[in-house]
Amino acid sequence: MDSRNFQMDAQWNIIYYPDKPTGFGVLIIGDERHFVDDSKSFWTQNEGKSAIIDQMKEKGYTLFSSNLYGRNWGSGSAVELAERLYHYVIRSEILNNKIHILAEGMGALVAVKLMEKMKGCIRSVILLNPILSLKHHLEQEKEHKFFYKKLIKELVTAHQMEQTLLESTIFSMDDQINLEYGYPVKIIHVLAGGKSYNQSKLYQKIISNPEINPTFMLPEKKQQLGNIIIRFFTSHETVL
């Protein structure tokens, strides 16, 4: 069996099976374009992402992912479902209980909350072009009225909060983002368009941390992503 799709809380989830499993699992948390439905997912439809899945399966990784309510923007319900999915996969598959996390864009908002909640269950984390601060992301989008209105609408739906309260809550958020929970963390940034890279002084401070060891990559080098991800994950598998 190549993959299996199933539902939890009316959300579709998918497990990708390798031919020769090593017992290590990877939770993939997608960006705002991500989806999982009854037969496919964004990561199987997108050529570049599909290549990464194939490379990781060849190395024996069991991969799993969820629709997570679509554009969830780090909502509590998305974090809770991701944690439930982890427990389901660990119970149903033969896997080491410490997983890797690979999160892209908006998915980093869920990943950072999981890092705090799931201590002892995470082996390492890769954040690909991450959005780490909802506050700074919203401040950036304020310059683009159409996108700001669209984003606010998505946030109201995701967080089930009235707009005025939502905006005041986000803009009063702490400027500190903690990525130091004892897990190895790597940020990979594909320098396309540059918008998400210029994520404020906060982001510059995070990537200047020697523990984070960011990788910056030109778009034409994207085919190297799979090897970089696999190399980082395998380097943190010596201790079971």
Rank of each mutant, 00 (worst) to 15 (best):
Q11R: 01
E180T: 10
S66C: 06
Q55F: 08
Y16V: 01
M217W: 02
S124P: 04
P18V: 12
F216L: 12
G74D: 06
K98G: 05
Q163V: 12
F171T: 09
K113P: 00
K201A: 15
G74N: 04
V125S: 03
S41V: 04
K49N: 06
L134D: 07
T215E: 11
N5Y: 12
T164C: 10
N97Q: 15
N129V: 05
V125I: 10
G23L: 07
A108C: 07
T164I: 13
D2I: 11
G60P: 00
A51S: 08
R231W: 00
M8S: 06
W43H: 12
V156Y: 03
Y203E: 04
S92G: 07
Y17D: 10
E32S: 14
L218H: 13
S92I: 09
R123C: 09
Q163D: 09
P214Y: 08
M118P: 02
D54A: 15
L202V: 10
G193S: 06
N67I: 04
K113F: 01
K222Y: 07
R33W: 10
H159M: 05
A108D: 00
F146G: 12
G105L: 00
F35N: 02
F24H: 13
S124C: 07
Q199K: 14
E180N: 13
L240K: 14
M161C: 11
F233L: 02
I212M: 04
I152Q: 02
L68V: 01
E47C: 05
F233A: 03
D175N: 14
M56C: 03
A51Y: 02
I187D: 02
N198E: 11
M217Q: 06
V36R: 04
V156G: 04
I177R: 02
K49F: 01
Q55E: 10
S3I: 05
N46L: 01
T164Y: 11
V156F: 06
L191C: 13
L191N: 15
L85C: 02
